[in-house]
């Protein structure tokens, strides 16, 4: 029991505390490739601490939704951090509360909450971002959920831990067609959900911003929460991609070796950051209305191989 509590606490704290670091490493590496000095890898932490100290301004006319949704969304992401294998390959205390599909639906819930709160601010920019998000997310979230179903069909269970264990013990299952294309579709969704360059260019002055515009009216502590949940979301999606789809191996489960998972996850993340970096620095941003084409391809892949995995069984 003590081990279980220790595992739960370590996974939770690791996700919470290390998520901004990966964003920082990403920013630093990208700056180096672009021949800039770049911010420190701890810059996201400095940003969060700075914002936590600042005054919070709330638009007049906004309701309770605007003020509490950042906390609620943060809570939703914290819950997801406890139910999917983002550090440990064995179930922890809250794992039983939801399965793979539950995790995907919680992601959608957080996205919905943030959109509702942004609409509540009454800002034109935020409303524009929400309308963009809504018109893209119907394919994005749909593909996310179908990918999770497709990968669960490989093991005939909806438990990500079982999928991870199955993929570790059956290496050939990693190169089945269904798994490869589910991975591809999930990677495409990962790039979209985390706002990477071929789809979205981050920054407050960008015309093509999607996710960033939801934060437009936020300031101070609320903005800090939103930014932090953004980092956690990126970490969660990336870790699912790594642990369930791309590289399921290398995780330890027994006490005290599970602490070795931390450097293992760092190594895996460096690989993922490298892959994303290559994409970010070689591709140009697509036009806004082309994002739907991209998501349609991801959705098509996920549905297609969902059907094929069912038929092949």
């Amino acid at each position: 029991m003590l081990t279980l509590i220790l595992e739960t606490v370590s996974q939770f704290l690791f996700v919470l505390l290390s998520a901004p670091l990966f964003a920082g490493i990403f920013g630093k590496f990208k700056a180096r490739i672009e021949s800039r000095k770049g911010p420190s890898i701890f810059q996201p932490y400095y940003d969060i601490i700075k914002l936590l100290k600042k005054e919070t301004l709330v638009p007049s006319g906004s309701s309770i939704l605007f003020r509490y949704v950042p906390y609620a969304a943060f809570g939703v992401y914290c819950l997801i951090a406890l139910i999917i294998p983002v550090l440990l390959p064995v179930p922890i205390i809250f794992t039983a509360s939801a399965d793979f599909l539950g995790g995907a639906i919680l992601f959608s819930l957080a996205a919905f909450l943030k959109m509702a709160a942004a609409m509540d601010s009454g800002s034109n920019i935020a409303a524009m971002g929400v309308s963009r998000l809504a018109s893209f997310n119907f394919l994005g979230e749909g593909a996310l959920i179908t990918v999770f179903i497709a990968v669960s069909l490989i093991t005939a269970t909806d438990n990500p831990y079982t999928t991870n264990a199955y993929l570790v013990s059956n290496p050939s299952a990693n190169i089945t067609l269904v798994h490869v294309f589910a991975t591809l579709a999930f990677f495409m969704i990962f790039l979209y959900e985390t706002g990477k360059i071929p789809l979205e260019s981050a920054g407050l002055q960008e015309l093509g911003m999607i996710d960033e515009s939801l934060n437009y009216e936020y300031s101070g502590r609320l903005l800090a929460m939103n930014k932090w949940s953004g980092y956690i979301k990126q970490y969660l999606l990336g870790s699912v991609l790594l642990n369930v789809f791309l590289i399921p191996w290398g995780l330890y489960s027994t006490y005290p070796y599970f602490l070795l998972d931390i450097p293992v996850m760092f190594g895996k993340w460096l690989l993922l950051i490298f892959i994303v970096m290559v994409i970010e620095t070689t591709l140009a941003k697509v036009r806004l209305f082309k994002i739907l084409d991209y998501l349609a391809v991801a959705f098509t892949f996920s549905i297609l191989f969902l059907l094929l995995s069912e038929v092949m069984h």
């Binding site: 084409d293 998501l295 349609a296 391809v297 959705f299 098509t300």
Partner: peptide, 10 residues
């Protein structure tokens, strides 16, 4: 219209 075509195709 690629998304439309793909969805109907699906």
């Amino acid at each position: 219209n690629v998304p439309y075509l793909f969805l109907v195709d699906l």
